[in-house]
Design a protein around this nucleic acid. Structure first.
Lengths: 337, 337
DNA sequence: TTGTATGCGTTATCAA
DNA sequence: TTGATAACGCATACAA
């Protein structure tokens, strides 16, 4: 059932039927009722491609999955983010296209995306330090928003993210308060903006207090449970093991906790926790000290920001910080404290 | 840059340019070269909406996320599945649209989807026992494939999934071999096909051996770590606690392990493990006895099957079983064994 | 308040 | 081997 058939059925022009269905005010109320009823009865749905072609809007957005880094969607941070953003887009009547783009493909992918006209905008999750996706998007007229922790607050593009440097500072201070002076950092992969920020926050606190800054106290690894476990094991089995560990993400913290348990030692653990549904969501009590934030909410906000930019593309770009919460419990005290 | 501009630039008709770019054989080789070069130089990309309107194909598929159950994508099983399928679709030149659909909306959502013509087919993940999404899709002309464990092998629709009944049987037998005679089942939510299958497999083995079949040895809960923990805690703290636990999914097993550790008891654990990237993927050694399968591969296969059905919609529907592996280690023996 | 005519960018049909 | 022309299904400027 298409517009032509429906209008013929009603003895009206396509124009009138189209107007009635799209809420134009000039349509007689009786006509509108009749049209809506007929549309309902015959299950009429406007063809998305035709409408898009006529209006110039796709009513769809792309969510960019940095395909190199993160085992794609399999990373729970990304999954939560995509879940939240997709909900927000759906609520606004926008479809979500999943766009797994490798760094190598980024240079051409976004120009294509814009030219093909299949989406009205793009949401980039989990930026890297020198992010090729962002760089490519900036060459484009496609509206975009970055969701995740940008490296610098004064970025030229719009973004929503939490203060990763501050999160690392807070968590490190918690460990210091527990009396620890030798703290290992289990960080994310080099190159990811969140890793750079964790390192920066950690270093700033450790340096100010004049504590041990041995470079091998910092380990870069994947954002997985196993990687966290292995990195923690290496640190704990080293000649001068730390008495406390800070991890960049929750999966790594879970792995680190396992490594600690295997050694039945007393090691303090802190992390940034992104509130994963698979861990029980906001219902679950925090498992580690550190910081905690509802990433799904942040992603939702990022989605809304993208919709705003699609509506008004020439608004000056701005960034927004997401709130986070500090979890002070439990911190295992340092030996002898 | 669109076709009209490009053709004018070349002094050719739109028809010829279109044919050259789409690999039609009747185009002179010299012309084709010239056209391709120009298209390259000017970054011409055919408009997806216009092409879709003209061809009747959207070159996009929907991946259905059962929005009621699973905290959406946040469930790692779903995330892995979507990741795998998206890769396969992308490799075939198809875009993926994420379609979070509630059970209530299912009745109308798929008719709309078909009518709107935004996708060429749908992939349904994680079916329920009486799945409203599948029921609604069967009313439609939209090609679809179900990825996940269908309740009956002789389903009328195409599917790819593992043998959930057999998986539960295998895992239960492993526990029996460890000398256990009182086994708790931490199952998924009632209504999910995978839960029904776990229960069926578990019951068939337990019954045949004439073991304890007390109904409160079976607990239904969410597929999260916390839910697994709480269910295990309840079982272990009951008047007559089981000496072994079987969980439906890995996150639940992690939670159950935590509950066991808190009680510092000797409880055997088995599960079906879907190989999550966040746990380290296939690199990581299995953490629990039971069965193990690469869900991402299965999802990839399901995606391919959908593409086949899109290409040949009237092929008779068939189901495919995915392979799984049995992990015999480690099984904690029963007390006194 | 309704209708006519045109355009959106592409592919497909038919003729040359 | 190429081109003119007509769809595809909808929205909209303009006319009535």
């Amino acid at each position: 059932m298409n517009l032509k058939e429906l209008s013929r059925l009603l003895g009206l022009s396509q124009t009138t039927v189209s107007r009635a269905l799209n809420g134009y005010p000039e349509v007689a109320e009786a006509t509108r009722k009749r049209v809506e009823q007929a549309a309902q009865d015959h299950g009429y749905r406007p063809n998305a491609r035709a409408r898009g072609l006529a209006t110039g809007r796709a009513m769809a957005v792309a969510q960019v999955i940095p395909a190199d880094w993160l085992g794609m969607l399999a990373n729970p941070i990304l999954a939560e983010a995509v879940a939240g953003a997709t909900e927000a887009f759906a609520a606004a009547g926008y479809e979500t296209t999943l766009a797994p783009v490798t760094d190598a493909a980024a240079a051409t992918a976004y120009g294509d995306m814009a030219a093909r006209g299949a989406v009205d905008g793009a949401l980039v999750h989990m930026p890297a330090v020198l992010d090729p996706h962002i760089a490519a998007l900036e060459e484009t007229r496609l509206p975009f928003v970055v969701h995740g922790q940008p490296l610098t607050v004064d970025a030229a593009y719009p973004w929503v993210g939490l203060n990763g440097v501050e999160a690392a500072r807070q968590a490190t201070r918690l460990l210091l308060r527990g009396g620890h002076s030798r703290i290992g950092l289990i960080n994310g992969p080099t190159g990811l903006a969140l890793s750079a920020q964790r390192a920066q926050g950690y270093r700033s606190v450790v340096k100010r207090r004049g504590l041990d800054m041995a470079p091998d106290l910092i380990r870069h690894c994947a954002l997985s449970e196993m990687a966290g476990h292995d990195a923690a094991a290496a640190l704990l089995d080293s000649a001068t093991p730390p008495t406390a560990l800070l991890t960049a993400t929750l999966p790594q913290a879970l792995g680190a906790a396992r490594a600690v348990a295997e050694r039945s030692g007393q090691v303090a653990l802190a992390t940034h926790d992104d509130v994963f549904d698979m861990m029980g969501g906001t219902e679950a009590p925090p498992r580690f000290a550190g910081t905690r934030a509802p990433i799904r909410e942040t992603a939702r906000r990022a989605a809304e920001m993208l919709l705003e930019r699609i509506a008004a593309p020439d608004t000056p770009a701005q960034g927004e910080r997401a709130a986070m919460q500090v979890v002070t419990d439990p911190v295992v005290p340092a030996p002898g404290v």
